[in-house]
């Protein structure tokens, strides 16, 4: 075990992925010599050479088209989009190409070797264009897998699993936690399962589900609720597509109540999908309506970021509303 922050865990996973798979390439804007604007790819060029870890020209659609080509040829493409806010020029390549490569060719061709890493979310005074959580645009796209880690140990195992999964994966990294989240990380090569949620804390009265950086908000809210004698079960969804409905439904059948927390805006956020599916699966077990605590239906602000965020206090209020329904 070593103490690492989230960036170091990601860097360590990339190092292992490139060491164990000689066909793995790591590229994107500024990822080469500089090691990326957040330094997630530090020293990879030094260690693996310019042919395997390199800067690309500044074109997200180019990066993803290029990555699709590399993966279609059979190599392992680990592409970085510098901020999730800048993924949209690549939307066509991801949604129309990466996601449908296997299906449209009758499995003659695929880009399963593709992993897209990208930092997402608020907490760095980044306003509209350095804070967004665009996961729901992609969870609406059959053929993609979507993964979001909550801490360093999870990031390493989930990233290795994403890189080695034979499907294109978007790996959203909570940039707010890059240096803030520090924890013990196993030194060895390990993978955590995609498509499986984790019950982080068991409880009996209400289920709280989140992913990535928002796990912190629901944990703090659960602590507040505990003082009122409310026992919260906390679930980290970890994978948003495909997502682990069974683990969540099992929990909600037990507690009868569910709060979903995500940073992205409410309308058409992934919380809507969860609420609809859990309502279908657990209708007769529900004691109160499923509630969503989310970002506002506004662009991500700057001066009033605190007001925008679905923080622990808003989550705590939702817990009380659900309990007192």
């Amino acid at each position: 075990m070593s103490k690492m922050n989230l960036l170091q865990a990601i860097n360590n996973a990339l190092d292992i992925a490139m060491s164990t798979d000689p066909s793995a390439l790591c590229f994107g804007e500024d990822v080469g010599h500089f090691g990326g604007v957040f330094r997630a790819t530090s020293h990879l060029q030094e260690k693996f050479g310019k042919a395997r870890c390199f800067n690309t020209p500044l074109t997200e659609q180019g990066i993803l088209g290029f990555a699709n080509g590399i993966a279609a040829q059979g190599m392992t493409a680990i592409a970085e989009i510098q901020f999730a806010d800048y993924i949209f020029p690549a939307f066509d390549q991801i949604v129309n190409e990466s996601a449908k490569f296997r299906y449209r060719s009758g499995n003659q061709f695929d880009v399963g070797g593709l992993t897209i890493r990208t930092p997402y979310g608020g907490g760095i005074n980044g306003a509209h264009y350095h804070s967004q959580s665009p996961e729901a645009y992609f969870t609406h796209t059959p053929g993609l897998k979507i993964v979001v880690p909550r801490n360093p140990e999870q990031a390493k195992g989930l990233l290795l699993a994403s890189i080695r999964d034979p499907n294109p994966v978007i790996f959203f990294e909570p940039k707010k936690l890059y240096r803030a989240a520090v924890g013990e990380v196993p030194d060895e090569d390990y993978q955590l399962p995609l498509g499986q949620a984790e019950v982080v804390r068991e409880g009996s009265d209400i289920t709280l589900v989140a992913w990535g950086a928002q796990m912190e908000a629901i944990e703090q809210a659960a602590q507040l609720a505990e003082k009122d004698g409310i026992s919260c079960e906390l679930i980290d969804l970890r994978s948003l597509l495909p997502w682990d409905r069974d683990t969540l439904a099992h929990s909600v059948r037990k507690t009868g109540r569910l709060i979903i927390n995500h940073e992205a805006p409410k309308t058409s956020g992934f919380g809507a999908e969860i609420a609809a599916s859990i309502q279908e699966a657990c209708f007769l077990h529900l004691e109160s309506p499923i509630l969503r605590v989310t970002g506002l239906d506004t662009p991500f602000p700057l001066a009033l970021e605190k007001e925008y965020m679905p923080d622990h206090l808003k989550t705590y209020e939702a817990i009380l509303a659900s309990m007192n329904y």
Partner: peptide
């Protein structure tokens, strides 16, 4: 209105379109 990061200026009066970060 305090919505964008510093240096994202804009002024309709001065015919200067408000700056957007995406390149």
């Amino acid at each position: 209105k305090g919505r964008q990061m510093p240096i994202h200026y804009g002024s309709r009066q001065l015919h200067y379109m408000t700056v957007s970060s995406p390149l």
